[in-house]
């Protein structure tokens, strides 16, 4: 398989290529080959550990956007059974940048909604790089409401550069569609767990993330604006994106510390793109655990807790004391 290597992953490239070629073409019975493979494997693991233990926020941004990273439908395929995708907003069209449907998580019916990116040129365009139009958000809401009506828990998978900035999107009420989702998700009686699986881009990401629990994959990002956009405005140069990524505090650890994210879901060594199944199983375990906890609460308790969760967010001074930050 020809892999796509990010710049900081490059040191791994030669070792991994040699390893894979040996495994494919040499006889594993040959003790020389076996010993070389073992050595290579150890080296690869050590190097991966080294690289991934000191990732910068900008490197994490690139990882979060990695083209081989598992996307919503990959997770759905690995986590759920009996998935049936549902289409359209019943008003304008079906937005391929959003996938929504019903499936079973360990035998229990759930609703799942996610932003969907593509991997090849055709799919990238068809999915609009995971940037929804208003009809995408309206489809998401329609299917979530379906879940709420049938008392099915909701899982959302966040992965978008942002809501699409286009003429049609504005004319059809991009802002209204996002705003409505924020309001409606705040009052749905069923448990909602959101997971940021890749890129959590601004209001377009938040529009499916008003949940009882917000989980975040280890190398995912969640930000008010893309580092490039922020750099263009505040530094007047997109080249300053790495500095902006640093300043914005957009990593999973940052979000946890700022009280926005409840749990960081660990990724396999080398990132989710190296092991889709490993990443999906870790996410599945966390989803099941959180949904179990939420199901033990009454709808009233959940709504109150969900309200309080967002109500507490923000940091400001009142009188003389600092308030609002979650401890």
């Amino acid at each position: 398989m020809l892999r796509h290597y990010l710049e900081f992953e490059r040191p791994l490239m030669e070792l991994e290529r040699e390893y894979e070629e040996l495994r494919r073409f040499a006889s594993p019975a040959d003790p020389k080959v076996a010993s070389r493979l073992k050595k290579l494997e150890a080296k690869i693991i050590k190097l991966r550990q080294e690289i991934f233990s000191r990732l910068t926020p900008w490197q994490r941004t690139q990882l979060a956007r990695h083209i081989e990273r598992p996307h919503a439908l990959d997770y759905i395929g690995l986590i759920l059974t009996d998935f049936v995708e549902l289409h359209g907003d019943r008003a304008f069209r079906d937005d391929p940048a959003v996938v929504a449907g019903l499936g079973k998580l360990e035998g229990e019916t759930v609703v799942v909604v996610g932003q969907q990116k593509g991997r090849d040129i055709y799919e990238l365009h068809r999915r609009n790089f995971g940037m929804p139009h208003p009809e995408g958000y309206r489809k998401a809401l329609r299917v979530m409401e379906l879940g709420a009506r049938f008392s099915k828990p909701i899982i959302t998978l966040v992965d978008t550069p942002g809501a699409y900035p286009g003429v049609g999107a504005e004319e059809r009420g991009q802002a209204e569609a996002i705003a409505r989702n924020l309001r409606e998700m705040a009052s749905m009686e069923v448990p909602i767990v959101a997971a940021v699986i890749g890129e959590g881009g601004s209001g377009g990401a938040l529009a499916i993330a008003v949940a009882d629990r917000i989980l975040m994959l280890q190398y995912a990002i969640f930000s008010v604006i893309s580092p490039e956009g922020c750099a263009a405005i505040l530094w007047r140069s997109r080249e300053k994106a790495p500095q902006a990524a640093e300043a914005l505090r957009l990593t999973a650890e940052d979000l946890k510390e700022l009280g926005v994210v409840d749990e960081i879901v660990p990724e396999p060594l080398g990132g989710a793109h190296r092991d889709h199944r490993g990443a999906a199983m870790a996410l599945k375990e966390a989803l099941i655990r959180h949904l179990e906890e939420l199901k033990r609460m009454t709808p009233e308790e959940r709504l109150e807790a969900r309200y309080e969760k967002f109500r507490r967010m923000g940091v400001f001074l009142e009188g003389t004391s600092e308030d609002g930050k979650e401890g």
């Binding site: 924020l182 009052s187 209001g203 008003v210 008010v224 505090r249 957009l250 700022l258 967002f310 923000g314």
Partner: peptide, 23 residues
Amino acid sequence: GARMQEGILSLVQMAKTSAALAR
């Protein structure tokens, strides 16, 4: 729109205000 200098804490104000409006 958002206040970039407050990062994600700015973004989540959208959810906070909208949740209050739901009530």
